[in-house]
Protein backbone atom coordinates (compact mmCIF):
# COMPACT_ATOMS: atom_id res chain seq x y z
CA UNK A 1 0.00 0.00 0.00
CA UNK A 2 1.36 3.40 -0.95
CA UNK A 3 2.11 5.55 2.11
CA UNK A 4 4.60 8.13 0.85
CA UNK A 5 4.61 10.53 -2.08
CA UNK A 6 7.98 11.95 -3.10
CA UNK A 7 7.91 15.12 -5.17
CA UNK A 8 11.07 16.47 -6.82
CA UNK A 9 9.96 20.04 -7.43
CA UNK A 10 12.19 20.50 -10.45
CA UNK A 11 14.50 18.57 -12.74
CA UNK A 12 17.48 19.83 -10.76
CA UNK A 13 15.93 19.09 -7.37
CA UNK A 14 18.41 17.50 -5.01
CA UNK A 15 18.81 13.74 -5.12
CA UNK A 16 18.57 12.11 -1.71
CA UNK A 17 19.35 8.65 -2.99
CA UNK A 18 21.48 6.63 -5.44
CA UNK A 19 20.35 8.37 -8.64
CA UNK A 20 21.56 11.68 -10.05
CA UNK A 21 19.17 14.51 -10.88
CA UNK A 22 18.84 15.49 -14.52
CA UNK A 23 21.68 17.65 -15.70
CA UNK A 24 21.02 20.72 -17.80
CA UNK A 25 17.33 21.11 -17.02
CA UNK A 26 15.66 23.13 -14.32
CA UNK A 27 12.08 22.53 -15.43
CA UNK A 28 9.81 23.06 -12.43
CA UNK A 29 6.58 21.25 -11.64
CA UNK A 30 3.47 23.16 -12.72
CA UNK A 31 1.49 24.72 -9.90
CA UNK A 32 -1.81 23.24 -11.01
CA UNK A 33 -0.31 19.77 -11.24
CA UNK A 34 1.14 20.16 -7.77
CA UNK A 35 -2.15 21.40 -6.36
CA UNK A 36 -4.06 18.42 -7.79
CA UNK A 37 -1.43 15.97 -6.60
CA UNK A 38 -1.54 17.30 -3.05
CA UNK A 39 -5.32 17.05 -2.90
CA UNK A 40 -5.00 13.47 -4.10
CA UNK A 41 -2.28 12.80 -1.50
CA UNK A 42 -4.51 14.12 1.28
CA UNK A 43 -7.35 11.88 0.15
CA UNK A 44 -5.02 8.89 0.07
CA UNK A 45 -3.52 9.75 3.48
CA UNK A 46 -0.02 9.96 2.06
CA UNK A 47 3.00 11.51 3.74
CA UNK A 48 4.57 13.93 1.30
CA UNK A 49 8.28 14.59 0.89
CA UNK A 50 9.47 17.54 -1.21
CA UNK A 51 12.88 17.64 -2.89
CA UNK A 52 14.19 21.16 -3.51
CA UNK A 53 16.69 22.56 -5.99
CA UNK A 54 19.63 24.66 -4.77
CA UNK A 55 17.98 27.89 -5.91
CA UNK A 56 14.79 27.17 -3.96
CA UNK A 57 11.30 27.50 -5.48
CA UNK A 58 9.02 30.40 -6.33
CA UNK A 59 6.33 31.89 -4.13
CA UNK A 60 3.49 30.17 -5.96
CA UNK A 61 4.97 26.76 -5.33
CA UNK A 62 5.73 27.69 -1.72
CA UNK A 63 2.10 28.56 -1.12
CA UNK A 64 0.88 25.22 -2.43
CA UNK A 65 3.50 23.26 -0.52
CA UNK A 66 2.30 24.78 2.71
CA UNK A 67 -1.22 23.46 2.23
CA UNK A 68 -0.11 19.99 3.38
CA UNK A 69 1.93 18.56 6.23
CA UNK A 70 5.20 17.43 4.70
CA UNK A 71 8.92 16.74 4.93
CA UNK A 72 11.43 19.10 3.30
CA UNK A 73 14.56 17.59 1.78
CA UNK A 74 16.95 20.41 0.89
CA UNK A 75 20.45 20.52 -0.60
CA UNK A 76 23.18 21.77 1.73
CA UNK A 77 24.13 24.39 -0.85
CA UNK A 78 20.58 25.82 -1.00
CA UNK A 79 20.75 29.56 -1.58
CA UNK A 80 17.45 30.13 0.23
CA UNK A 81 18.64 30.36 3.85
CA UNK A 82 15.16 30.10 5.31
CA UNK A 83 14.49 26.96 3.32
CA UNK A 84 17.75 25.43 4.54
CA UNK A 85 17.02 26.37 8.13
CA UNK A 86 13.56 24.85 7.92
CA UNK A 87 14.71 21.65 6.28
CA UNK A 88 13.94 18.32 7.88
CA UNK A 89 16.70 16.59 5.94
CA UNK A 90 19.80 18.25 4.49
CA UNK A 91 21.67 16.57 1.64
CA UNK A 92 25.38 16.93 0.89
CA UNK A 93 26.40 16.05 -2.63
CA UNK A 94 29.99 17.03 -1.98
CA UNK A 95 32.37 17.05 0.95
CA UNK A 96 32.99 20.77 0.49
CA UNK A 97 31.62 22.78 3.39
CA UNK A 98 30.83 19.83 5.62
CA UNK A 99 33.43 20.79 8.24
CA UNK A 100 32.02 24.27 8.69
CA UNK A 101 28.32 23.47 8.33
CA UNK A 102 26.12 24.31 11.29
CA UNK A 103 24.74 20.88 12.12
CA UNK A 104 21.65 20.75 14.36
CA UNK A 105 20.21 17.90 16.41
CA UNK A 106 16.73 18.35 15.00
CA UNK A 107 17.81 17.83 11.39
CA UNK A 108 18.84 14.62 9.68
CA UNK A 109 21.68 14.57 7.17
CA UNK A 110 22.45 12.66 4.02
CA UNK A 111 25.87 12.42 2.41
CA UNK A 112 25.93 11.19 -1.17
CA UNK A 113 29.34 9.94 -2.22
CA UNK A 114 31.20 7.27 -4.11
CA UNK A 115 32.63 4.32 -2.19
CA UNK A 116 36.26 5.24 -2.68
CA UNK A 117 35.77 8.84 -1.60
CA UNK A 118 33.78 7.66 1.41
CA UNK A 119 36.55 5.30 2.47
CA UNK A 120 39.00 8.19 2.26
CA UNK A 121 36.83 10.35 4.56
CA UNK A 122 36.88 8.13 7.60
CA UNK A 123 38.08 10.94 9.88
CA UNK A 124 35.39 13.27 8.56
CA UNK A 125 32.64 10.76 9.27
CA UNK A 126 34.01 10.05 12.73
CA UNK A 127 33.91 13.77 13.50
CA UNK A 128 30.41 14.08 12.09
CA UNK A 129 29.06 11.27 14.25
CA UNK A 130 29.75 13.43 17.26
CA UNK A 131 27.75 16.34 15.84
CA UNK A 132 24.56 14.79 14.46
CA UNK A 133 21.78 12.56 15.66
CA UNK A 134 21.02 10.93 12.32
CA UNK A 135 23.34 10.48 9.36
CA UNK A 136 22.52 8.56 6.20
CA UNK A 137 25.35 7.74 3.86
CA UNK A 138 24.23 6.98 0.31
CA UNK A 139 26.77 5.36 -1.96
CA UNK A 140 26.22 6.59 -5.50
CA UNK A 141 28.26 3.99 -7.36
CA UNK A 142 26.87 0.69 -6.09
CA UNK A 143 27.11 -0.96 -9.55
CA UNK A 144 30.88 -0.38 -9.41
CA UNK A 145 31.28 -2.07 -6.04
CA UNK A 146 33.83 -4.64 -7.14
CA UNK A 147 35.78 -7.14 -4.99
CA UNK A 148 38.75 -4.77 -4.76
CA UNK A 149 36.61 -2.41 -2.69
CA UNK A 150 35.20 -5.03 -0.32
CA UNK A 151 38.01 -5.00 2.24
CA UNK A 152 38.33 -1.23 2.17
CA UNK A 153 34.61 -0.80 2.77
CA UNK A 154 34.64 -3.31 5.61
CA UNK A 155 37.63 -1.65 7.25
CA UNK A 156 36.02 1.77 6.86
CA UNK A 157 32.82 0.62 8.58
CA UNK A 158 34.67 -1.14 11.37
CA UNK A 159 36.81 1.94 11.93
CA UNK A 160 33.65 3.83 12.93
CA UNK A 161 32.73 1.36 15.67
CA UNK A 162 34.89 2.91 18.45
CA UNK A 163 33.40 6.35 17.80
CA UNK A 164 29.83 5.06 17.92
CA UNK A 165 30.54 3.09 21.11
CA UNK A 166 32.06 6.20 22.65
CA UNK A 167 29.03 8.28 21.72
CA UNK A 168 26.55 5.70 23.02
CA UNK A 169 28.53 5.34 26.23
CA UNK A 170 28.24 9.07 26.77
CA UNK A 171 24.48 8.98 26.11
CA UNK A 172 24.54 10.26 22.53
CA UNK A 173 22.61 7.61 20.60
CA UNK A 174 23.74 8.66 17.15
CA UNK A 175 22.19 6.84 14.20
CA UNK A 176 24.25 5.91 11.16
CA UNK A 177 22.20 4.05 8.59
CA UNK A 178 25.04 1.74 7.54
CA UNK A 179 25.74 0.48 11.04
CA UNK A 180 23.07 1.21 13.62
CA UNK A 181 19.92 0.56 11.55
CA UNK A 182 20.57 -3.20 11.35
CA UNK A 183 20.86 -3.34 15.14
CA UNK A 184 17.56 -1.57 15.67
CA UNK A 185 15.53 -3.38 13.01
CA UNK A 186 13.64 -6.64 13.45
CA UNK A 187 12.69 -7.08 9.80
CA UNK A 188 13.37 -5.75 6.34
CA UNK A 189 13.11 -1.98 6.21
CA UNK A 190 13.90 -1.12 2.62
CA UNK A 191 13.17 1.74 0.29
CA UNK A 192 9.96 0.03 -0.87
CA UNK A 193 9.52 2.21 -3.91
CA UNK A 194 6.55 1.01 -5.91
CA UNK A 195 5.09 -0.66 -2.84
CA UNK A 196 5.02 1.99 -0.12
CA UNK A 197 6.26 5.06 -1.95
CA UNK A 198 5.58 6.70 -5.25
CA UNK A 199 7.01 9.73 -7.00
CA UNK A 200 5.32 12.63 -8.73
CA UNK A 201 7.87 14.03 -11.18
CA UNK A 202 8.19 17.60 -12.49
CA UNK A 203 6.59 16.43 -15.76
CA UNK A 204 3.33 15.81 -13.89
CA UNK A 205 3.45 12.01 -14.12
CA UNK A 206 3.87 9.33 -11.50
CA UNK A 207 7.00 7.18 -11.42
CA UNK A 208 8.11 4.29 -9.26
CA UNK A 209 10.77 6.52 -7.70
CA UNK A 210 12.70 9.64 -8.78
CA UNK A 211 15.46 7.46 -10.24
CA UNK A 212 13.04 5.95 -12.75
CA UNK A 213 12.04 9.44 -13.87
CA UNK A 214 15.58 10.77 -14.15
CA UNK A 215 16.75 7.59 -15.85
CA UNK A 216 14.08 7.80 -18.55
CA UNK A 217 11.80 4.92 -17.59
CA UNK A 218 8.11 5.14 -18.54
CA UNK A 219 5.64 6.76 -16.16
CA UNK A 220 3.27 4.63 -14.10
CA UNK A 221 0.35 7.04 -14.20
CA UNK A 222 -0.79 10.62 -14.52
CA UNK A 223 -2.29 13.08 -12.07
CA UNK A 224 -5.47 12.91 -14.13
CA UNK A 225 -5.95 9.16 -13.90
CA UNK A 226 -3.88 8.30 -10.86
CA UNK A 227 -1.06 5.81 -10.53
CA UNK A 228 -1.29 2.41 -12.16
CA UNK A 229 1.67 0.21 -11.31
CA UNK A 230 1.66 -2.95 -13.39
CA UNK A 231 2.72 -6.15 -11.67
CA UNK A 232 2.70 -4.41 -8.27
CA UNK A 233 3.43 -7.68 -6.47
CA UNK A 234 6.98 -7.59 -7.81
CA UNK A 235 7.75 -4.60 -5.57
CA UNK A 236 6.78 -6.57 -2.46
CA UNK A 237 9.26 -8.52 -0.39
CA UNK A 238 7.14 -11.65 -0.77
CA UNK A 239 7.91 -11.69 -4.48
CA UNK A 240 11.65 -11.08 -4.21
CA UNK A 241 13.22 -14.56 -4.02
CA UNK A 242 16.64 -13.38 -2.84
CA UNK A 243 15.53 -10.59 -0.50
CA UNK A 244 12.78 -12.50 1.28
CA UNK A 245 15.33 -14.91 2.78
CA UNK A 246 17.83 -12.17 3.61
CA UNK A 247 18.50 -10.59 7.01
CA UNK A 248 20.50 -7.56 5.91
CA UNK A 249 17.50 -5.58 7.12
CA UNK A 250 19.14 -2.19 6.59
CA UNK A 251 19.65 -2.78 2.84
CA UNK A 252 17.96 -0.19 0.65
CA UNK A 253 16.87 -2.96 -1.73
CA UNK A 254 16.92 -0.35 -4.45
CA UNK A 255 14.52 -1.38 -7.21
CA UNK A 256 16.22 0.99 -9.64
CA UNK A 257 19.56 -0.72 -9.09
CA UNK A 258 17.79 -4.04 -9.43
CA UNK A 259 16.36 -2.98 -12.77
CA UNK A 260 19.74 -1.70 -13.93
CA UNK A 261 21.76 -4.72 -12.89
CA UNK A 262 19.43 -7.66 -13.41
CA UNK A 263 16.58 -6.24 -15.55
CA UNK A 264 14.13 -7.20 -12.79
CA UNK A 265 12.86 -4.90 -10.02
CA UNK A 266 12.61 -7.78 -7.58
CA UNK A 267 16.12 -9.16 -8.03
CA UNK A 268 19.18 -7.41 -6.63
CA UNK A 269 22.56 -7.51 -8.31
CA UNK A 270 25.50 -9.04 -6.53
CA UNK A 271 27.00 -5.63 -5.75
CA UNK A 272 24.01 -4.52 -3.68
CA UNK A 273 23.86 -7.81 -1.78
CA UNK A 274 27.56 -7.89 -0.95
CA UNK A 275 27.62 -4.26 0.13
CA UNK A 276 24.60 -4.79 2.39
CA UNK A 277 26.17 -7.88 3.93
CA UNK A 278 29.44 -6.14 4.67
CA UNK A 279 27.33 -3.52 6.49
CA UNK A 280 25.34 -6.25 8.25
CA UNK A 281 28.48 -8.00 9.45
CA UNK A 282 30.01 -4.73 10.63
CA UNK A 283 26.75 -4.03 12.49
CA UNK A 284 27.17 -7.36 14.22
CA UNK A 285 30.62 -6.31 15.38
CA UNK A 286 29.25 -2.96 16.51
CA UNK A 287 26.61 -4.74 18.59
CA UNK A 288 29.28 -6.87 20.23
CA UNK A 289 31.35 -3.78 20.99
CA UNK A 290 28.36 -1.94 22.43
CA UNK A 291 27.57 -4.89 24.68
CA UNK A 292 31.12 -4.93 25.95
CA UNK A 293 30.91 -1.25 26.78
CA UNK A 294 27.30 -1.42 28.02
CA UNK A 295 26.47 -4.91 29.31
CA UNK A 296 22.89 -5.88 28.52
CA UNK A 297 22.62 -3.45 25.58
CA UNK A 298 19.74 -4.64 23.36
CA UNK A 299 20.02 -8.10 24.85
CA UNK A 300 17.14 -9.44 22.76
CA UNK A 301 18.85 -8.66 19.48
CA UNK A 302 20.78 -11.45 17.79
CA UNK A 303 22.71 -11.04 14.56
CA UNK A 304 23.97 -14.46 13.57
CA UNK A 305 27.44 -15.03 12.22
CA UNK A 306 27.16 -16.04 8.56
CA UNK A 307 29.65 -17.34 6.03
CA UNK A 308 28.29 -15.72 2.89
CA UNK A 309 28.07 -12.21 1.50
CA UNK A 310 25.43 -12.96 -1.12
CA UNK A 311 22.22 -14.84 -0.25
CA UNK A 312 21.89 -15.77 -3.91
CA UNK A 313 24.60 -18.36 -3.28
CA UNK A 314 22.24 -20.10 -0.86
CA UNK A 315 19.23 -20.32 -3.11
CA UNK A 316 20.24 -20.51 -6.75
CA UNK A 317 18.32 -23.40 -8.21
Amino acid sequence: MIKYLIIPLSDNAVSFCHYNARKGSSATIETETLRKALIWAMKENLSVQFLYPSEGVGKNIELIINTIDHTDIVPADCRDNNRLKGADIVVFNTWDGIETFGFRPDQSYIIRTTTEILINHRDGIQALLKKVNRLNIVVTDVPNFNPELHNGYQEFLESLIPTIVEEYSSGHMVQLNLLTDRIMLTGMNNCNAGNESLTLAPDGNFYTCPAFYFDGFPAVGTTEQGPDIKNPQLYRLSHAPICRICDAYQCKRCVWHNQQLTFEVNTPGKQQCVMAHIERNASRKLLEALRKAMPGFMSETIIQEIKYLDPFDNIKI
Partner: peptide
Protein backbone atom coordinates in the same frame (compact mmCIF):
# COMPACT_ATOMS: atom_id res chain seq x y z
CA UNK B 1 26.16 -13.10 -13.95
CA UNK B 2 23.80 -10.43 -12.59
CA UNK B 3 21.57 -10.94 -15.61
CA UNK B 4 21.23 -14.62 -14.74
CA UNK B 5 20.16 -14.07 -11.14
CA UNK B 6 16.44 -13.68 -11.90
CA UNK B 7 16.44 -16.86 -13.96
CA UNK B 8 18.31 -18.88 -11.36
CA UNK B 9 16.07 -17.81 -8.48
CA UNK B 10 12.77 -17.96 -10.30
CA UNK B 11 10.35 -20.43 -8.77
Amino acid sequence: SNKLRPFLTLD
